[in-house]
Nucleic acid binder design. Structure first.
Lengths: 193, 193
DNA sequence: ATCATAACATACCGATCAGTATATAATGAT
DNA sequence: ATCATTATATACTGATCGGTATGTTATGAT
């Protein structure tokens, strides 16, 4: 009945996600987007709405993937302590390996957008809370199995680990020496006993 | 010999600092600056150089004041543990009390600028390192006085507290529940024994 | 074959961007 | 009083911003 779309909407959104992730919202122009997504301006507007709606869709795609990754890394395997160690060290490793130094898209958005845009304040908060719930689940698994016997409650510990991970991720933007990061990870992991 | 300046350069820089602190670099326009600083465009350029140079001067002013404040809060008083507690709780309190939710100018810059501007990568890293040195000094004071007897070395602990503080400050941007933050502060402070 | 529909590409919109040219006003040395 | 110097205010520059109007092309139902 009608002409069909010539581009893959999901792939275009993925492309947009990487652009916004690299440059943030303000610094990304519509021209950056059309160039990176390989489609023209009206195609963006018809498929995703305006710039901010596209940004929101891109962020949602990111947080969904990011949460799924955290889930799979922390809720499988035998040792919870080892899972957390691998998770934190993995974040550090990926961060050093990224020449663009993008960090976490959700954290970037929290800093850039949350203070003056309630939608993103809520969206980013809920993602971090969800991450905290995943951490808590992992800790409780360790408590049940007898691997862990921590003094503080699982919820508080999980939330503290979220805070620590945010701090670590942000600190990586300034490219600190390896020893700084490695020692910090060690000390943070001592919280998990 | 020549006409003298009609505005206070230091006050104008202070004004610029607050604007950049609120809105970040990209989202701040020259018009925002002229309006907030109460001077005209050519006055900015003649006194401070271009937008990025003004931003750098504003950030340097902020970090100097920020470091001095950390120093005075942590290196005076009897109990080091209490000093850290007051310092962390003060950050949280100020953050909740700020309707603009600006957080820390240096951290904001780390997220927005450091990944693609080496000058700000270095500048922000050095500030965080300096903050770490202040923390370390406080911890070593507590070790000497016998108040503290921590397992990990003072340097690693100090760096971890910097990371935690960054995480806490960034998390505040998403306006989490008080219990989240309070519990996190409690757990973080257990590192200082 | 015709036609309604919608995706496409191009070119445009007014607004705003960072930065500057120009002209005027103030200053102090002479 | 004159003059060089520099701060001031206004108005402008070309470039770019987010967003859209317009005309063309492809599609499938009839």
């Amino acid at each position: 009945m009608v002409r069909q779309r010539e581009f893959d909407v999901d792939q275009a959104l993925e492309d947009a996600m990487h652009i916004f992730w690299s440059k943030g919202y303000e610094a990304t122009s519509l021209s950056d987007l059309t160039a990176g997504m390989g489609i023209q301006r009206p195609s963006i507007y018809s498929a995703f709405g305006d710039k901010k709606e596209l940004f929101e869709a891109a962020l949602r795609k990111y947080t969904a993937a990011h949460a799924a990754q955290a889930r799979s890394r922390l809720l499988h395997g035998e040792s919870v302590k080892e899972a957390f160690r691998r998770y934190f060290e993995g974040i550090v490793e990926e961060s050093y390996a990224d020449p663009q130094n993008r960090g976490c898209f959700c954290i970037n958005t929290m800093v850039e957008m949350a203070p003056h845009d309630e939608k993103f304040e809520i969206l980013t908060r809920e993602h971090e809370m969800y991450l905290g719930a995943i951490f808590q689940e992992a800790i409780e698994r360790g408590l049940r199995s007898g691997e862990l016997h921590t003094g503080v409650d699982a919820r508080s510990l999980a939330q503290t680990l979220v805070v620590s991970l945010i701090g670590l991720t942000v600190m990586m933007k300034a490219r600190p020496e390896r020893s700084f990061v490695d020692h910090s990870v060690e000390v943070i992991l001592t919280l998990i006993q």
